[in-house]
C-alpha cells in the first residue's frame, strides 16, 4: 500500500500544481457567493468536477429551474461518458472499488489513469485507487483551504493553470511515442479544432468527441489492423516494467515502433496548432472563461 501511495503522489505532482490555483479560486468564489468552507467542501466531495462546480455557483444564486440545471450539468460534463470506455474491463476486476474509481473519473484522474507507469512491485489495483484518492483529496482540501484563507493569498498565480495543459500535452506525447498507430490523435485534433471554430468554445467538446468516435468507428478496419499487426510483431524493450502484460491501459499500446516516432510527432502537433491560428480568429468575441 505504501509503495502505491508514494507512486501515486509522485505521479500526480503536475495535477497538484495545476489544481492549486483553480481550487483556491473556487473556494474564494464560494465564500464571496455566501457559502462557507463547509458548503465548499461538501460540494467538492459530492460533485468532484471542477468546471461544473464553478457553474453551480451561478445556479445557487437562483433564477434557474431544476430542469435547466440537470440539462446544463449533463451537457457541461458530457465528455465524461467516454472516460469509462477504456477501463470497463479493468475496473470490473476491482470489484467494489470500481464505484469509487467511477466516482473519481474526472479529467485529471482519467489522464493519470491513461499514463500509469508503475514498477512490478506496485499493485495495479492499489495504484489506481491511490491515484484517484490522492488527486480527489487535493481538490477537496485545496477548495476548502481556498474558502478559508484563499482571499489572503496575494501571490500572482496567473498562468499557473497551464500546468494542466502541459500535463495533457506530456501524456499525449508519451502515448504517441508508444502507439503503433497515431491516427486517433490526429483525428481528434482535427475534429476538435473544426468544432471549436465552427461551434465556438462553449459547446464544442461533445460534438467534437462524437465526431471523433464516429470517424474512429468508420476507420476501425484501417486503425484496428495496425493495432493487431503490431500485436504480433511486438518487441518489448522494457524488461522491468511489465511482467503482466495488462498492467496499464497504455501498455496495450506500448509496442515500440521507434522508427516512426521522431518524424511523426514533430509533424503532427505543431502543424496542427500552427494551421489553427488564422482560422481561430473566427471565434473572437465568444466568451470562454467562466
Amino acid at each position: 500500500m505504501k509503495k502505491a501511495f508514494i507512486y501515486s503522489i509522485k505521479h500526480s505532482i503536475p495535477v497538484f500544481i495545476g489544481f492549486t490555483p483553480v481550487a483556491l479560486a473556487y473556494g474564494v468564489l464560494m465564500v464571496s457567493a455566501g457559502y462557507n468552507f463547509i458548503w465548499t467542501g461538501a460540494t467538492s466531495i459530492i460533485v468532484l468536477a471542477g468546471s461544473l462546480q464553478f457553474l453551480m455557483v451561478s445556479f445557487f444564486a437562483g433564477g434557474v429551474s431544476i430542469g435547466t440545471i440537470i440539462v446544463m450539468a449533463l451537457l457541461l460534463n458530457s465528455r465524461h461518458i467516454f472516460y469509462g470506455i477504456p477501463f470497463i474491463e479493468k475496473f470490473r476486476k476491482f470489484k467494489g472499488w470500481k464505484y469509487y474509481l467511477i466516482y473519481t473519473l474526472a479529467d485529471e484522474i482519467f489522464s493519470l489513469h491513461c499514463s500509469h507507469d508503475f514498477g512490478p512491485d506496485v499493485d495495479e489495483k492499489k495504484a489506481y485507487i491511490c491515484t484517484a484518492f490522492v488527486v480527489s483529496q487535493y481538490w477537496i482540501i485545496m477548495t476548502i483551504i481556498g474558502a478559508l484563507i484563499g482571499s489572503l493569498i496575494k501571490f500572482d498565480t496567473s498562468g499557473i493553470d497551464f500546468a494542466m495543459t502541459a500535463l495533457f500535452i506530456v501524456i499525449l506525447l508519451d502515448q504517441l511515442k508508444d502507439a503503433p498507430v497515431k491516427l486517433p490523435a490526429a483525428i481528434a485534433f482535427v475534429s476538435s479544432l473544426a468544432c471549436l471554430i465552427i461551434i465556438g468554445a462553449d459547446s464544442f467538446i461533445l460534438p467534437s468527441l462524437l465526431i471523433t468516435v464516429a470517424v474512429l468507428i468508420v476507420m476501425k478496419n484501417i486503425i484496428g489492423s495496425r493495432l493487431s499487426v503490431s500485436d504480433d510483431t511486438t518487441i518489448h524493450d522494457e524488461p522491468v516494467a511489465d511482467p503482466d502484460t495488462e498492467e496499464t491501459i497504455s501498455s496495450d499500446l506500448s509496442f515500440k515502433e521507434t522508427a516512426q516516432v521522431g518524424t511523426g510527432l514533430k509533424e503532427m502537433i505543431p502543424a496542427d496548432l500552427i494551421t489553427a491560428k488564422p482560422d481561430k480568429q473566427t471565434i473572437e468575441g465568444t466568451e470562454t472563461e467562466k
Binding site: 477504456p86 474491463e89 489522464s111 495533457f168 499525449l172 486517433p184 490523435a185 490526429a186 481528434a188 484496428g224
Partner: peptide
C-alpha cells in the same frame, strides 16, 4: 469488440481533445 477497440484508441483521442479544450480560451485579437 468495437468498444474494446474504442477503449484502445480513445485515450489518445481524448487527450488530444483535452489539449484543445484547455486552449479554447486563446484569442488572436
Amino acid at each position: 469488440v468495437i468498444v474494446q477497440y474504442l477503449g484502445k484508441v480513445l485515450p489518445m483521442a481524448i487527450m488530444a481533445t483535452l489539449i484543445i479544450y484547455c486552449l479554447k480560451g486563446v484569442s488572436f485579437d
